[in-house]
Amino acid sequence: MESEKPSFKEQSLIKMIQRMLNLIIVLVAFIIILPLLIYNADTISGWFKSSNEKAITPAFPEAKPEKGNAVATTVAYWQPKAMDAIADPTLKEQVYYGRELIAHTAKYLGPNGSVLQITNGQNCQNCHLQAGTIAFGNNYGSVASTYPKFRARSGTEENIYKRVNDCFERSLNGKALDTSSKEMQAIVAYINHIGSNVPKGEKAVGSGLKDLAFLDRAADPIKGKTVYETKCQSCHQANGEGVLNPDKIEYSFPPLWGKHSFNDGAGLYRITNFAKYIKYNMPLGVTHENPQLTDEEAWDVSAYVLAQSRPHIAVPKDWPDISKKPIDHPFAPYADPFSEKQHKYGPFKPIAEKAKK
């Protein structure tokens, strides 16, 4: 026996109820999703930016009141000149390749590099954050505008090629790039382009590293070990070896000591540089306005990291005029009576006062 089919009126009523249910579902979903869209508007808008904008344009902060360990911001910091506006297609390709080499140095020039095998496996942007574009993140904002320039470390006038190769030989514990190579030309083109909006002879606002007050005592590696274990070890690992990606090509978190880290001739081997760098950039994700580490933690954990073993580089021609050595240069001889240990860990106020006289 066939079941009785619903009448036309009943069918219309069923359809109307289904439409009402669908409408209610849409409204409920809208009510739930709308606050999430509003809250994450900045993140969502970033999905629709060009890859260049995502990669090299940091979000520069607006002024914020001072609160706790945060720092009030009232200035506009340097931003890299946009890359997608480059008219010359050949130059554009070169600049983009330069950025790629800065961001993924190991992929091309590391121990398993596709072009050369001349570095320790770290990337330039491990020290020069977001390919050298972040305020007080060791950025490249002032490189094009200030080079060539005299550097007391070598006692000579240096060009950008020399400066780049210093990083290859020291921070990347590797070999110098041929200055005429495609890779060196691309790196220099990138640095020159993003800093071309800074007038010649001037320094970009927010370039270099942010100042950090000296302690009244020496930085303490023992105290620093506790800081490291609490706030650094989860990324850089217990023995400072970092985390190598499964492809064995790049590090997701770079080594801080050991054979794959920067050597003892690198700029970050000086504790004032290292402490400034981590105070305002670490743990990864903090900004110079809202640092997480206290001053004492930054100095002490720097002392701990720099007390560990790392590669040595022989640089007998460094600092031909020893009176020009920075107060935290960790190797004698010095033009003052302070010990090598004090020059490495402090206290630095007596050394600085002596230098003024």
Results as ranks from 00 to 15, higher is better:
Met282Tyr: 12
Asp300Lys: 03
Val198Glu: 10
Trp78Ile: 03
Arg153Ser: 05
Asp42Tyr: 06
Lys225Ala: 12
Ser171Glu: 06
Leu256Thr: 15
Pro61Arg: 09
Ser252Pro: 02
Leu209His: 11
Val164Trp: 09
Leu268Lys: 10
Ile160Gln: 15
Ala41Asp: 03
Ala352Cys: 01
Lys341Thr: 07
Ile160Ala: 13
Gln122Ser: 09
Lys49Trp: 12
Ile222Ala: 15
Leu21Asn: 09
Thr146Gln: 04
Lys276Tyr: 00
Ile191His: 07
Phe150Arg: 13
Ile160Leu: 14
Asp300Gln: 00
Phe48Gly: 13
Asn123His: 08
Leu23Ile: 06
Lys182Ala: 13
Tyr280Val: 00
Asn290Met: 12
Glu2His: 10
Ile194Gly: 05
Ala298Gly: 01
Val164Glu: 09
Lys248Pro: 03
Thr133Lys: 04
Trp47His: 00
Lys162Ile: 11
Val115Thr: 06
Phe348Ala: 02
His193Asn: 02
Lys325Met: 06
Ile351Thr: 06
His128Met: 14
Gln292Ile: 15
Ser252His: 02
Lys15Thr: 15
Lys341Glu: 08
Thr90Leu: 12
Arg153Trp: 00
Ala176Arg: 05
Ile14His: 03
Asp166Tyr: 09
Cys232Val: 07
Asn120Gly: 01
Lys225Trp: 11
Ser180Asn: 10
Lys248Arg: 06
Asp220Lys: 04
Gly258Leu: 00
Val243Ser: 08
Gly208Glu: 01
Ile44Lys: 05
Ile118Thr: 12
Ile38Phe: 04
Cys127Glu: 04
Asn197His: 08
Ser114Tyr: 07
Val75Pro: 00
Lys223Asp: 13
Ile31Asp: 10
Ala266Lys: 08
Trp47Lys: 03
Asn159Lys: 05
Tyr77Cys: 07
Gly346Phe: 00
Pro246Gln: 01
Ala186Cys: 00
Pro148Arg: 08
Asp166Met: 04
Gly113Ser: 04
Ser339Asp: 02
Val188Glu: 13
Lys182Phe: 06
His193Phe: 09
Asp264Val: 08
Ser180Val: 08
Ser145Asn: 05
Val95His: 02
Ser12His: 06
Leu34Lys: 15
Cys124Glu: 01
Ile24Leu: 11
Val28His: 01
Cys167His: 13
Glu157Arg: 10
Asn52Glu: 12
Ile38Tyr: 14
Leu177Thr: 12
Asn192Gly: 02
Ser171Gln: 13
Ile278Leu: 10
Phe30Tyr: 15
Pro65His: 09
Gly174Pro: 15
Leu293Val: 06
Ser309Pro: 00
Pro246Asp: 03
Pro347Leu: 00
Thr73Leu: 13
Ile25Cys: 09
Tyr140Gly: 02
Ala106Cys: 01
Pro283Gly: 08
Gln94Arg: 11
Ala238Met: 07
Ser171His: 14
Asp220Val: 07
Lys225Ser: 11
Glu229Lys: 12
Pro333Cys: 09
Asp211Glu: 14
Ala152Tyr: 05
Ala144Tyr: 06
Asn173Trp: 00
Cys124Thr: 04
Leu116Ala: 15
Gln11Tyr: 00
Ile33Met: 14
Gln342Lys: 01
Thr43Val: 10
Phe60Ala: 12
Tyr228Pro: 09
Leu116Phe: 08
Tyr96Phe: 11
Asp211Pro: 02
Thr287Val: 03
Ala82Ile: 04
Ser171Trp: 05
Met16Glu: 15
Glu241Asn: 07
Leu101Ser: 00
